[in-house]
């Protein structure tokens, strides 16, 4: 469970300050599928990075599964990022020197999972995202949609409770976007909590709930009446 209350994030740019998040309180339960939308610069990525334990709020409280994360050490945060959270980025963020399989194995390396099991689980994750064929290709030998599927496989290979995706379809064409949304739907159906940032209404309509940001505040929080399912 994700619980943010009165979260504020201020960026200090020398003389000026940017209030990226002003006063955000948000609760996301297990099994939810939330789309965060809003205009550019409204604080969506900032919020996602805080939820994904990559960044820390300036003030306010963030509880992940009941634990106040501001009390955790860097290593404990790394552990949670490894076990509890899978992150998917708009720009894929794969390691260019490693092939698809090795990229997917990477989180398990940090979890000290033996190599045989790593390989099995990576293959299964790649199968889930429908990419069993191209496992020995390097990222630059894959299309954008394929790269994003590798990134999703990497995000889910540790069976995280939360899948966080910041504009996962932002760099993809419609067909690839649909493929990604199908994968997300299946993952959510099988119990993974999904939080995704998007600025496309079609993509947001895949979620069960839409949270709208503007200027660092939540201005709307609604359920999706006719969500797209597969």
């Amino acid at each position: 469970m994700i619980e943010l209350s009165k979260v504020k994030k201020v960026y200090n740019l020398g003389k000026t300050q940017v209030d990226a998040l002003k006063d955000v309180s948000l609760k996301i339960d297990k099994g939810e599928y939330v789309a965060i939308v809003g205009p550019s610069g409204s604080g969506k990525s900032t919020l996602m990075n805080i939820i994904g334990l990559l960044d820390k709020p300036t003030s306010g409280s963030y509880k992940l599964n009941g634990t106040e994360v501001s009390t955790l050490s860097d290593d404990q945060l790394a552990y949670l990022r490894n076990r509890q959270i899978g992150f998917v980025f708009q720009s894929f963020n794969l390691l260019s020197k490693l092939n698809a399989l090795a990229n997917v194995e990477l989180p398990m390396l940090y979890a000290k999972i033996p190599s045989k099991e790593r390989r099995q689980r990576a293959l299964r994750a790649l199968e889930i995202v429908g990419l069993s064929e191209r496992i020995h290709h390097k990222p630059n030998e894959l299309s954008g949609g394929q790269q994003q599927r590798v990134a999703i496989a990497r995000a889910i290979v540790m069976n995280p409770s939360f899948l966080l995706a910041d504009e996962p379809t932002g760099n993809l064409d419609t067909a690839s976007s649909v493929e990604i949304m199908k994968i997300f739907y299946q993952l959510n159906e099988s119990g993974t909590t999904i939080v995704m940032v998007t600025h496309e209404q079609d993509i947001a309509n895949h979620a069960k709930r839409i949270v709208r940001l503007r200027d660092g505040n939540i201005i709307q929080d609604t359920l999706v009446p006719n969500r797209i399912t597969y």
Binding site: G52, L54, D74, D75, A78, Y79, R81, N82, R83, F87, N93, L94, L95, L106, P107, Y110, A111, R154, M158
Partner: peptide, 16 residues
Amino acid sequence: TREIGIRKAIGARQKD
């Protein structure tokens, strides 16, 4: 630096 960021995002500790 970016590679280090990616590794940290997926769970690498300082020690790693």
